[in-house]
Amino acid sequence: MSMAANRLRYVARRLLQAIPIILAIIVLNFLLLQLPEGDAADVLAGEAGSATPEYMAQLRAKFGLDEPLHIQLLAYVKNIVQLDLGYSFRNNMPVLDLILDRLMPTLLLMVSTILLAVGVGVLLGLFAAMGLNSWRDNLISIFALVSYATPLFWVGLMLIVVFSINLGWFPTSGMETIGAFYEGWDRVLDIAHHLVLPTITLSLFYLALYTRLMRASMLEQSGMDYVTTARAKGLTERRITFKHILRNALLPVLTMAGVQVGSLIGGSVIVESVFGWPGLGMLAFKALFARDLNLLLGIFFLSACLVVIVNLIVDIVYSFLDPRIEMR
């Protein structure tokens, strides 16, 4: 059996395993719908009573709200699986369209954050571990310790105070300069300019986490037997660090990066609301204020799916890095 076929089957199996998780999230959503007082139709229509009575009746019929609970559940699952997430009267748009509209900015923010946090975190952790207990190590460790303890929203606000209000280097909010209507590379640059502060804000905590993890992981790996073997072979410390320890030390960081994607989405709610970034988090923040629970549930569901997908990608990347992963 060739490697490629094995890997393909591995991916297929992981995809299959994702299905029950998605189903479970749908069931969880359904249970959450039952929690608030009153009829689920009230929640589904957006609590504010902005829906027409006809629509309410239609909703009740569609979700079988007069039927027993398990039938309701089936109806709910059926609707969600068909990606029918309901209608938001507040925004006069189907929930799915609303979410898809806002997906790209959030993805952009997430990808740039992950790249920055993992990239710089790994580098800093590596530097710290290579100069153990030197001033460099101490400085990096203190930076990581403080960043790890700082609330995201506060970092965002303070960055705005310093870099936007006082220095005027970066815009305070939004994703593009309003009314500028840039096109092509100008637009890309404009978005990138807006992206800097939100990315730094969102990545700081994770950057600190990966720095600490990478440092600890490097130290742990450098005590392993295979490192002694490498020394006994006559390799230089530099080669031992980069060819042997580094790759082994990266594995736990990668695993952690996968685990953290979910919390990254949570963090983006805060960061997007601080920077007025027009993504899913901002949408969630607005839905929260409008008490549009159905929209919130929709965002919750789709971001959970996003996490499942990212985890899948991480698993596949991992299978390239670690030959011990069984792909049968």
Binding site: L28, G262, G266, A284, F300, N311
Partner: peptide, 9 residues
């Protein structure tokens, strides 16, 4: 798997 902060919200 589920985004924890969003879930808490």
């Amino acid at each position: 798997t589920i985004p924890s902060f969003l879930f808490a919200i």
